[in-house]
């Protein structure tokens, strides 16, 4: 069963007080719990947060399943999200995603067997002048990506 760390719990308690309503702490709490749970939010995370936050599980699960930055199934250590919206797909976003999936032997949203990667196609990340752009986990963007740059990244990330 998932349990927040002492530090995580403290942060969640702070968020519960930070906004006008307790419910506003659901998004930040899910970010914290997701990180502590290896990158995804399992049903027991929802149950635990419901107890810690004293909010109905339904409210937490509705938020969890509405927003794309929360993963509802396990993801690799490096969740590579490739933008395939208009400008990025014009700059080869779909081709990059196809290439990477083929190289790693996975389909969209699937985790590699070694648990290193999950590849997803993402919607517009707001970096269309440096297309194609990718985001790995919840971190700063990597811009003007091409196959060589992707290969280099995949080789580096353990």
């Amino acid at each position: 069963m998932f349990q927040l760390s002492a530090d995580g719990k403290k942060k969640v308690q702070e968020y519960l007080k930070r906004y006008e309503t307790k419910r506003s702490a659901i998004i930040p709490a899910l970010y914290i719990a997701q990180q502590e749970n290896g990158g995804w939010v399992s049903p027991d995370v929802v149950k635990h947060l419901s107890e810690v936050m004293e909010l109905p599980m339904t409210h937490i699960n509705e938020v969890l399943t509405f927003y794309t930055m929360f993963n509802k199934k396990p993801v690799g250590r490096h969740h590579i999200q490739i933008c395939t919206n208009v400008s990025c797909s014009m700059a080869g976003g779909h081709d990059l995603a196809d290439y990477l999936c083929e190289r790693l032997g996975v389909v969209d949203g699937e985790m590699t067997k070694d648990g290193r990667f999950t590849i997803s196609r993402a919607e517009c990340l707001g970096s269309c002048d440096t297309a194609p752009v990718i985001q790995i986990n919840i971190d700063d963007y990597i811009e003007n990506v091409d196959k060589a740059k992707l290969d280099q990244l995949v080789n580096q990330l353990k």
């Binding site: 049903p43 149950k47 599980m57 339904t58 409210h59 937490i60 699960n61 509705e62 399943t65 509405f66």
Partner: peptide
Amino acid sequence: NEFGIFNRGDHAEIGTVDGM
């Protein structure tokens, strides 16, 4: 508060958390 609508768009589904 048992029922919620989970997911969005045409994948939205009513249900209870974990089939509660």
